[in-house]
Amino acid sequence: MRLLIITGISGAGKSLVIKHLEDMGFYCVDNLPPLLIHKFVEICIQSRGKIDKIAMVIDIRGGELFNDLFPELKALKDLGILYEILFMEASDNVLIKRYKESRRTHPLSPEGRILEGIKKEREILKEIKKQATYIIDSSNLTPRQLKEELINIFEYGKKFNGIIINIISFGFKHGIPIDCDLVFDVRFIPNPYYIESMRNQTGKNELVRDYVLGFDETQCFLIKLREMLDFLIPNYIKEGKSQLVIGIGCTGGQHRSVAISEALFSHLSKKGHRVVINHRDMIKK
Results as ranks from 00 to 15, higher is better:
residue 1 M to F: 02
residue 4 L to I: 11
residue 8 G to E: 00
residue 14 K to N: 05
residue 15 S to N: 11
residue 16 L to S: 08
residue 16 L to C: 06
residue 17 V to W: 11
residue 19 K to L: 08
residue 20 H to G: 02
residue 23 D to Q: 13
residue 27 Y to S: 07
residue 28 C to P: 08
residue 29 V to G: 01
residue 32 L to N: 05
residue 36 L to Y: 07
residue 38 H to K: 13
residue 38 H to R: 10
residue 39 K to W: 05
residue 39 K to N: 06
residue 39 K to M: 06
residue 40 F to S: 06
residue 42 E to L: 02
residue 45 I to E: 14
residue 48 R to S: 04
residue 55 A to N: 14
residue 55 A to R: 08
residue 57 V to M: 09
residue 59 D to Y: 09
residue 60 I to L: 15
residue 61 R to Y: 08
residue 62 G to K: 11
residue 64 E to K: 14
residue 72 E to T: 01
residue 76 L to V: 01
residue 76 L to K: 05
residue 78 D to W: 02
residue 83 Y to K: 09
residue 87 F to A: 06
residue 87 F to L: 09
residue 88 M to A: 00
residue 95 L to S: 02
residue 100 K to F: 14
residue 101 E to V: 11
residue 101 E to F: 15
residue 103 R to K: 15
residue 104 R to F: 13
residue 107 P to G: 03
residue 109 S to G: 12
residue 110 P to S: 11
residue 110 P to K: 14
residue 111 E to N: 15
residue 111 E to I: 09
residue 113 R to I: 10
residue 116 E to W: 09
residue 116 E to I: 12
residue 118 I to P: 06
residue 118 I to D: 03
residue 121 E to K: 15
residue 122 R to Q: 14
residue 124 I to N: 05
residue 124 I to T: 04
residue 125 L to M: 07
residue 126 K to E: 01
residue 132 A to V: 06
residue 136 I to G: 05
residue 139 S to F: 11
residue 141 L to V: 08
residue 147 K to E: 00
residue 148 E to G: 08
residue 149 E to Q: 11
residue 158 K to G: 09
residue 160 F to S: 07
residue 167 I to F: 07
residue 168 I to S: 00
residue 171 G to C: 04
residue 172 F to R: 05
residue 173 K to E: 06
residue 174 H to D: 00
residue 175 G to I: 10
residue 182 L to A: 12
residue 183 V to S: 11
residue 188 F to G: 01
residue 189 I to G: 01
residue 192 P to N: 02
residue 193 Y to P: 03
residue 193 Y to H: 15
residue 194 Y to C: 10
residue 196 E to F: 10
residue 196 E to R: 12
residue 199 R to N: 09
residue 199 R to I: 04
residue 199 R to T: 08
residue 200 N to D: 11
residue 200 N to Q: 08
residue 201 Q to V: 02
residue 203 G to C: 10
residue 204 K to L: 15
residue 207 L to W: 05
residue 208 V to L: 08
residue 210 D to S: 10
residue 210 D to K: 15
residue 213 L to S: 01
residue 215 F to V: 08
residue 216 D to N: 12
residue 217 E to T: 05
residue 217 E to A: 07
residue 217 E to R: 13
residue 218 T to H: 03
residue 223 I to N: 11
residue 224 K to N: 13
residue 225 L to H: 03
residue 230 D to T: 09
residue 234 P to Q: 00
residue 243 Q to T: 01
residue 244 L to M: 02
residue 249 G to P: 04
residue 249 G to A: 09
residue 251 T to Y: 12
residue 252 G to E: 03
residue 253 G to M: 13
residue 256 R to E: 02
residue 256 R to F: 07
residue 258 V to P: 08
residue 260 I to H: 05
residue 262 E to M: 14
residue 263 A to L: 10
residue 263 A to H: 09
residue 264 L to S: 05
residue 270 K to P: 07
residue 271 K to C: 15
residue 274 R to N: 14
residue 275 V to Y: 06
residue 279 H to Q: 03
residue 282 M to D: 00
residue 282 M to Y: 03
